[in-house]
Design a protein around this nucleic acid. Structure first.
Lengths: 250, 250
DNA sequence: GCAAATTTGTCCGTATGTATC
DNA sequence: AGATACATACGGACAAATTTG
């Protein structure tokens, strides 16, 4: 099928100096096309030659615009197949924050600290809703993740981190705020990437970490938001302290 | 001056199937260059021809890589001058979330709701630290912003929104968590862009909004975190309710 | 399994617009 | 004003990946 009747094409030929670069017009044009046709993630977009013709730009400009949109996960490109609407994830946030954490040799610990603090804020702020809305089978899954942490403790830690992530993802899942859930996992991604560069991962605290997670599970089982918040505080306090100590060592 | 000794160039010529596109190697190469040379925002990067030679890529690949990095605010390009290290802001998050809010005709209100809820979570979660660490002159600024809202109320609302934003930015400024502060302003940006498309901005509630902000200021003056949290709740409740109502109307 | 068609990936050469000195 | 350095944009050509007949 051809491009169709869907809101492609610059209305103004911009006879004189276009104040903004042409590729930006192409970016806006592709955005408008997606919005106008109410496309969903995974839906196909016109091919590059079609976009060139419709938007009156060369292939280079169209391709640069597509690169911008892929970086934001608004479009997704598959070599040899075509371009599609992206998943609209927060991958750009992860990449941006990760790089910021790796960049500044003075502020990297601060970035890590801010990250952990934000995650704690999410979970403590949602304490009541979390303990109220977690189902029995979800609580069982939480306990299962703690078991996974115990089993993986002896290993290299790869499984340990995954169990930890799954645990906290599951905690925020039932509150019904996708943004907070995705932000939390994004922060986790950044933490996992940046932490090894800072020697924050010390395996000596694994036993205490497991015990704290168990306490969180017990608080959920008892449907006790106050105890839940207290368990979270005791879980996060040593993590934040370790980051602060690592920062002081420098 | 030449590029210098700073970690540019693909170590492996990738003799066989390079699984990832060349532009991605260029992206990683530029990132590594920034990290290796410990550059700061605003520092100049090599010119495009220099990057081509150093990374063994053509002009097109280098330019597409630069487009990706500009979308993430990792590099910044000034026409006719050169490329520089970007500000590492969360502009990518704003653009991504904004588009997501505009896209889904069913979930857009949910995105707005999640946004507002996250902002409320930040401010209520930091209640104790906010009322404890705000200085007298900052409190005066808060009151000044409320006055601005009163003055702008009769106008078209442009100044009203700005005063509102300044108010909440100032609230989160003293807690020392840059990430939360930037996320909050990012959420605000998205809200302001998306809300007009959803008819959430109803000016009839301006008087109540001003009164609620005044109550927040009074709570800060009294250094009362409980009253502060209560004032915040009363401020955000009608906002969330308006979004929910607008959602129901559809 | 092979070959052709489609689509994106990469390169090159050239011309133009912009900022600085 | 002129010269230089740089990014912007264009068009054509070929390579690589994927699908299809």
């Amino acid at each position: 099928m051809a491009v169709g009747q869907g809101a492609l094409g610059r209305t103004t030929p911009e006879p004189k100096s276009a104040r903004q670069p042409l590729r930006q017009e192409v970016v806006d044009g592709i955005k408008a096309y997606i919005l106008h046709n109410r496309l969903r993630p995974g839906d196909p977009l016109p091919t590059e030659p079609e976009l060139c013709e419709a938007l009156g730009a060369s292939r280079s400009s169209v391709r640069e615009a597509i690169r911008i949109l892929t970086a934001l996960d608004i479009v997704e490109v598959r070599h040899g197949r075509g371009t599609y609407v992206g998943r609209l994830s927060l991958s750009a946030l992860v990449e941006s924050l990760t790089f910021r954490g790796l960049l500044s040799p003075d502020d990297d610990f601060r970035v890590m600290y801010d990250l952990v603090e934000a995650r704690e804020l999410f979970e403590r702020g949602m304490a009541e809703r979390i303990v109220a809305s977690l189902g029995e089978e979800q609580i069982a899954s939480l306990a299962g993740h703690v078991d996974d942490m115990r089993r993986a403790g002896a290993g290299e830690g790869r499984g340990f981190v995954e169990a930890d992530r799954a645990f906290h993802t599951l905690l925020l899942a039932p509150i019904g705020n996708d943004l907070i859930g995705q932000l939390s996992t994004a922060f986790w991604d950044v933490y996992v990437i940046v932490a090894p560069h800072l020697d924050v991962f010390t395996h000596e605290h694994e036993a205490a970490t497991i015990a704290n997670h168990q306490r969180i599970v017990d608080a959920v089982k008892g449907r006790d938001p106050v105890e839940f918040a207290a368990a979270l505080a005791e879980h996060y306090a040593p993590v934040r302290q370790r980051i602060a100590e690592a920062r002081a060592r420098r």
